[in-house]
Amino acid sequence: MNFEVSGSTVFIAALAMIALTIAIVFIIRTVYNKRSSSNLTEKHAGTTFKSPLEGRNKYPEVDTFSLSGTLMNYGLLTAIALMILAFSWTQYEKVVDVSGLLSTLEEDIEVETPRTAEPPPPPPPPPPPVIQEVPNDVSIETTVVFKDQSIQEETMVEAPVKKETAPPPPPPPPPPDVKEDEIFKVVEDNPAFPGCEGISDKAEKKRCADEKMLQFIYSNIKYPAIARENGVEGMAVIKFVVEKDGSITSPEIARDIGAGCGAEALRVVQMMPKWEPGKQRGRAVRVQFNLPVKFKLE
């Protein structure tokens, strides 16, 4: 049985039980005071009891122990009712109206391209070689010296000595190619915030997931004090990757409006639970997601 009550209901029920208990005590006290004011001595002057136990209470009309069983049952019922209310006390999450913020997710987000250092200029080309002209009338004399390499019958020829050397070690195997999974920007089935798994229609499921995501963001986000004091408003953009298992990785600030707004949006994104991963051709893939977070003073 699903029995849920709010905090105000528990408080009102507790006050009602306390008031009822006080009223019961007041009524019983009034009744016994009225009975004790009557002349009980004359009424029970000739009363005899069969045993001392029956006569332990001199005046039965004002015997407070006669209601002990009833009052104990009332106490037990009150305790059980309070216990049921305490266990059924439900704190409801604050519902944030995000209907006016759904359009921000459909806008084209322009992300500034990070500036990179300019490469140094290429070195100047080497100077061309200098060609020295040689006049045609200059003669070049070369002297050829012939060496006698004839072998006689008595000439001893020694065979060359071969030196045995160890073969060189084999080269180390090349390192394996680390192929990082591709990060998609557009997929057939976009990643979705959890909470709408039972919806089959894609458009309705996307709208439900967007509402759940925005409610999570704007119920956890805290407007930075510096931005509030200086009236800073605008839209920060957080870029992150939804992995194959739905986890959020590589969150970073793609656009910041300053005054701590970008850091606060990044903090909330890092708190997100696992998403339903995006799919391409029926298999889960890594998908990049750009999330705009709007800061507006009220």
Results as ranks from 00 to 15, higher is better:
Q215K: 07
L85P: 11
D201N: 14
L67M: 04
P125H: 02
T78I: 00
M72W: 02
L20M: 10
Y74A: 07
K34S: 14
V268D: 00
E197V: 05
I238Q: 02
G100E: 10
E110K: 00
Q280H: 12
V161F: 15
T64L: 13
T30W: 13
E298G: 06
P124F: 05
K185E: 08
T70I: 07
K279T: 10
L53S: 02
V96R: 04
V293R: 05
T249F: 04
C208K: 02
I140Q: 08
M213V: 01
P169N: 08
V10G: 02
A117D: 12
D189S: 07
P169M: 06
A159W: 01
V10H: 08
K94F: 01
P129T: 04
G234T: 02
C261Y: 03
G55Y: 05
D245W: 10
I131Y: 00
T113A: 10
P120I: 12
D210Q: 07
F65H: 07
W89N: 13
V241C: 02
A45F: 14
K212S: 05
I221R: 01
P126I: 07
I199C: 11
Y218M: 06
K294G: 08
N230G: 05
M156V: 14
V96G: 03
S219A: 10
A227Y: 15
T78C: 00
A259L: 06
M156W: 03
E182Y: 14
A23C: 12
W275K: 07
G246F: 09
P123F: 13
F184W: 11
Q91E: 07
P173T: 11
F295H: 10
V138M: 15
P124S: 09
T70W: 03
S247E: 07
D189G: 01
P52G: 00
D108S: 12
V96E: 11
K94D: 05
P167C: 03
Q215M: 06
P160I: 07
I140W: 08
V293N: 03
S139N: 05
T104V: 15
K163W: 07
G46A: 09
S38D: 14
I253T: 04
N39I: 09
Q132F: 01
R29T: 09
A254E: 01
I199Q: 10
T90D: 03
T64S: 06
K244S: 09
K163I: 15
N136I: 11
V287Q: 04
I248D: 02
Q149L: 13
R115Q: 13
L67W: 02
A16F: 11
D148F: 03
M83P: 00
C208P: 05
P114T: 13
V161A: 14
N73K: 14
P277N: 12
A117K: 09
I183P: 08
A86S: 14
V62L: 11
E276G: 03
I226L: 14
K50Y: 08
K205C: 01
W275D: 05
I28K: 04
P191N: 03
D137Q: 12
D210R: 02
K185L: 06
T64G: 06
A263M: 09
D108M: 07
E106K: 15
G69H: 09
I18E: 11
E298Y: 03
P122A: 15
V241W: 01
L266S: 00
R35Q: 12
R286V: 05
T78R: 00
G75E: 01
P160T: 10
A45Q: 13
A236S: 15
V241M: 01
K179W: 10
L214H: 09
